[in-house]
């Protein structure tokens, strides 16, 4: 047990539904193990903590071979919404919390959540656009400072 992980910093860089859940599950699982966890939301991953966006994340139906759906069909209007709705129903059936509930769970579990400064500037996102659970908007340098002594997981 001398090599036990005591701290993780998880970078969430994707903005698709299937792209954000793994990082959040890893963060929550870390807290459940008593491991210190921080999440850093960057680029389209910033949507996860954006109050205007987090309820509208979609499953990627184009360029996602895992879905086993023809790209042409995946690109038709409405298909992404439909597949997303199916996925959400499946997740609800498996008792996987929706994003709003998941973010509250992470926050209550003591997981630190941070927005990426460069991404906020790029997309014109300010503190007011982010969910209240977010601790701060930080730079890459500050992220590395925060992550010091732990593992970094990029998703």
């Amino acid at each position: 047990m001398d090599t036990a992980i005591t701290k993780v910093s998880i970078i969430v860089s994707k903005g698709s539904l299937e792209g954000v859940y793994p990082g959040l599950i890893m963060a929550n699982g870390a807290r459940a193990e008593g491991i210190e966890a921080n999440c850093f939301f960057t680029f389209f991953g910033l949507d996860v903590i954006n109050v205007h966006r987090y309820e509208h994340l979609k499953v990627a139906t184009v360029g996602n071979p895992g879905l086993h759906m023809a790209t042409l069909i995946g690109g038709l209007p409405g298909v992404s919404s439909l597949v997303t709705r199916m996925m959400e129903q499946k997740m609800e059936h498996s008792d996987i919390p929706n994003l709003g509930e998941f973010l509250a769970l992470l926050s209550d579990a003591g997981c630190g959540m941070y927005g990426c400064r460069a991404s906020c500037e790029l997309f014109g996102v300010t503190r007011e656009d982010l969910i209240p659970e977010v601790k701060d908007i930080i730079s890459v340098g500050e992220f590395y400072h925060l992550a010091a002594g732990g593992e970094i997981i990029f998703t």
Binding site: R31, A32, E33, G34, L105, D108, A109, G110
Partner: peptide, 15 residues
């Protein structure tokens, strides 16, 4: 509440 569980058992409530 989850928050209270972590306050009671900081090293992982369920575990």
């Amino acid at each position: 509440p989850v928050k209270e569980l972590y306050a009671l058992f900081p090293k992982g409530p369920a575990k």
